[in-house]
Structure formats: structure tokens, C-alpha cells
Simulated assay, not measured.
Amino acid sequence: MSDPRIIVALDFPIAKQALELTAKLDPRWCRVKVGKELFTAAGPQLVEKLMGKGFDVFLDLKFHDIPNTVANACKAAAGLGVWMMNIHALGGRRMLSAAREAVPIGLSKLIAVTLLTSMERSDLNEIGLNGDPQDVVQRLALLARDCGMDGVVCSALEAPSLRKMMGRDFCLVTPGIRPVDASLNEQKRVSTPRQAIENGADYLVIGRPVTQARDPVSMLWRLNEEIEGTRRNEE
């Protein structure tokens, strides 16, 4: 598989657990995501180890600060050699543009976070973002594209409208992916792998269904088979 669609979220508190899991996985079948908890615990050294095993790494730190600080952080991430990184679209135009300037197109994918998949309309109202989550996501995605981002993180429920609005070349990364029989945990806007691909998602971030499976390799195989079946139907 030359372009794996699944990004396994290595949401572990220590490097040992992440390395034990990835020792079982094949980088031809998935990419991996390193988020705030694991990066804070294990740092850039773990990212380098994962890349040394052949994995493309999505560095999920959601940079959100003044433009110069975010630009320097993105430059450091690109220097590590990560495949993808993200920044928060709520940081605004100057911050997004500074990040894009710091990471030339083609070096590392630069993705904007729109809204966290844990947020509902009531959450938006509390922080003064009026409107449905989908409306806010669309507004932020348009801003991200205007600032030269390669794509956005969005829920699979928002993917159809964004795909139609943004075109085929704009990358859509969807967290909140669960197999049909899985629990939702704290996420609200979730989808199955098949639904997400049919809705226009490019990459699916999948954590606990793989990392907490009795047999992570079999689960990853099953999820990839579901995705491949959807893609064949589209063709």
C-alpha cells in the first residue's frame, strides 16, 4: 500500500508502549500520530525512532500562539522530518500565513485544525462562536485554504461539504473514526471508516480501536480492507 489512509494515534503516556505497538505494525499499512501526551513524555527522540522504523509521522501538537512562535515551532517540526503537522485555525490569518512561510510547500504537510471533534453547538455558544459546528468548520477551512494550508482536520460528518467546496487536492484528515461496534468515548462527531472515505476523507486518524485491540494487527488489516473495499466501489 503506497499511500496508507490510516493514521494510528499513538496516544500513550510513555515511549515504551508506543514502540511495543509499532514493532507489531507495518509502515506500509499505516502512518502514526504523535500527540501532546506522548511528545511531552518522550520528545523528538521518539519521533526520530518511529521514522527510523519507516513510519510517516503526523506530529499532532496543534500549534496555537503568536505568529513568530508558531512559525519557529513549525520550522523545528519540519526539521525533524515529520510527514505532517498541524496548527489551530483559530490562531487567525497572520499565524496561519507565518506557518506556511516557515514550511515551504512539499516539505511537510501543513494541516489546520478547525474544531475539535469533542465540541458541540453548546460548547461553541459558550466561547462565543455562534452557529452550527459545520458552519464554523467551513469558515475556518476557507481561511486555512486562503492562507495556503495543505488541508484541514475535520470530522467525517463535515467532509462531504468541505470536499465539494475545496476540491480534490485539498487534504481532509478525519479523527473520531470508530468501527461500527466500538464505543464513542468522549467524542461526539464520529464516523465509521467506510462512511469517512465515502464522505471524501483522505486520511483517517484511528486510536483506541487499534491500540487497545486484543490483536492490533488483525484490526488494522480489517480496517484497511474496509477502506479498500470502499475505494474499489468508487472506481
Rank of each mutant, 00 (worst) to 15 (best):
F58W: 04
F58A: 04
L59K: 06
L59T: 02
L61I: 01
L61E: 01
F63N: 10
H64D: 13
I66M: 13
I66P: 04
P67Q: 13
N68G: 08
T69M: 10
V70N: 07
A71D: 02
N72M: 14
A73T: 05
A73N: 10
A73S: 14
C74T: 02
C74N: 04
K75A: 14
K75V: 01
A76Y: 00
A76M: 01
A77E: 06
A77Q: 05
A77K: 04
A78V: 01
A78P: 02
A78G: 15
A78C: 09
A78E: 10
A78N: 07
G79F: 02
L80I: 02
G81K: 07
V82Q: 11
W83L: 02
M84C: 08
M85C: 03
N86S: 07
N86Q: 08
A89V: 02
A89W: 04
A89F: 07
A89C: 12
A89H: 03
A89M: 06
L90R: 14
L90G: 09
L90M: 15
L90E: 06
G91W: 09
G91K: 03
G92S: 04
R94D: 15
M95C: 06
L96P: 01
S97W: 03
A98Q: 10
A98I: 04
A99R: 01
A99H: 01
A99D: 08
R100L: 06
R100M: 02
R100F: 05
R100E: 04
E101L: 13
A102R: 00
V103N: 12
P104W: 06
P104S: 11
P104M: 09
I105H: 15
I105E: 07
I105T: 15
G106S: 09
L107W: 00
S108I: 01
S108H: 00
K109Y: 15
K109N: 13
L110D: 12
L110K: 07
I111P: 05
A112I: 02
A112P: 01
V113I: 14
V113L: 15
T114M: 05
L115V: 05
L115M: 11
L115C: 11
L116S: 07
M119Y: 06
E120I: 07
E120Y: 01
S122Y: 13
D123L: 06
L124Y: 06
N125E: 14
N125C: 12
N125Q: 14
E126T: 07
E126S: 14
I127S: 03
I127C: 08
I127E: 10
G128W: 08
L129T: 03
L129M: 15
N130V: 11
G131W: 00
D132R: 15
D132Q: 13
D132M: 05
P133H: 09
D135L: 08
V136A: 04
Q138R: 12
R139L: 12
A141W: 15
A141G: 05
A141Q: 14
A141N: 10
A141R: 13
A141Y: 14
L142T: 09
L143D: 03
L143P: 00
A144R: 04
R145H: 13
R145I: 02
R145M: 04
R145W: 15
C147S: 13
G148Y: 00
M149A: 13
D150I: 08
D150E: 10
G151R: 07
V152A: 02
V153Y: 11
S155L: 02
S155K: 10
S155W: 10
L157P: 00
A159K: 03
A159E: 00
P160D: 06
P160C: 08
S161K: 05
S161I: 01
S161M: 06
